[in-house]
């Protein structure tokens, strides 16, 4: 794509949108995020209904430890910042910097997943498995779906690093990095809701 119209567009909009075909893929990715948002919305609705249905199991107040979840929040919010810098570096054609910040994102994400898993393991070792109550089912599935998304994101980032090493910054890899960052920010926003709506308000109630 090297028609004058496109290169003019090139000046005014971010580089990942410059190629028409790749920019259509970004639109498509937004639509995917919309479907994912409805998945989480449904799971939040389920959790809201089941929150008080604790049966013979623990209540949210008895179960949650805030320490690990605050740590998870810090890790994930920071990783959202680092992936933002990676995109900034991509727009300025600094490949080494993209590598560095993407790896930092990945490590922070892995830290988040490990903390979450150890948190879940500690709950389950007290006998709070999802079989026990509707509340625990809703909790594990809502938070676990988010954790699974983060895990998938980490694997995605690894394949992205390999592609960047092989091909450098092209129209395709730029778009892939950008959609990855959209995905990652999206998970961050979902986490903000989980932290507030599940953990904090669970502790208060």
């Amino acid at each position: 794509m090297s028609t004058p119209a496109v290169s003019e567009r090139h000046q005014s909009i971010p580089v990942e949108f410059a190629d028409e075909e790749e920019s259509i893929k970004i639109t498509g990715f937004w639509m995917f995020l919309m479907t994912d948002m409805i998945i989480f919305a449904s799971l939040f609705a389920v959790y809201a209904v089941y929150r008080s249905r604790t049966a013979l199991g623990p209540t949210p107040q008895q179960l949650f430890h805030l320490g690990p979840t605050v740590l998870e929040t810090l890790l994930l919010l920071t990783s959202s910042f680092t992936v933002g810098i990676a995109v900034w570096a991509m727009r300025h054609n600094r490949l080494r910097m993209v590598f560095g910040w993407l790896i930092a994102t990945l490590v922070l994400g892995a830290g988040f997943v490990i903390t979450e898993i150890s948190d879940f393991v500690s709950y389950m070792s007290q006998g709070a498995t999802w079989h026990v109550s509707g509340f625990l089912s809703g909790f594990y599935v809502l938070v676990g779906t988010h954790g699974a998304h983060v895990t998938f994101g980490i694997m995605w980032a690894i394949t992205l690093l390999l592609q960047l090493r092989r091909r450098g910054l092209t129209a395709v890899t730029r778009r892939k990095l950008f959609t990855f960052s959209l995905y990652w920010h999206f998970l961050d926003i979902v986490w903000v809701f989980i932290f507030t709506f599940v953990y904090l308000s669970g502790k208060i109630a």
Partner: peptide
């Protein structure tokens, strides 16, 4: 979501739509 939760109930023993255990 509805299908996945039902499948979890059936196959992995969660308690979403069961009659006991606070399911609904």
């Amino acid at each position: 979501v509805a299908l996945a939760l039902s499948l979890l109930d059936r196959t992995f023993g969660s308690s979403f739509f069961t009659l006991g255990h606070g399911g609904m």
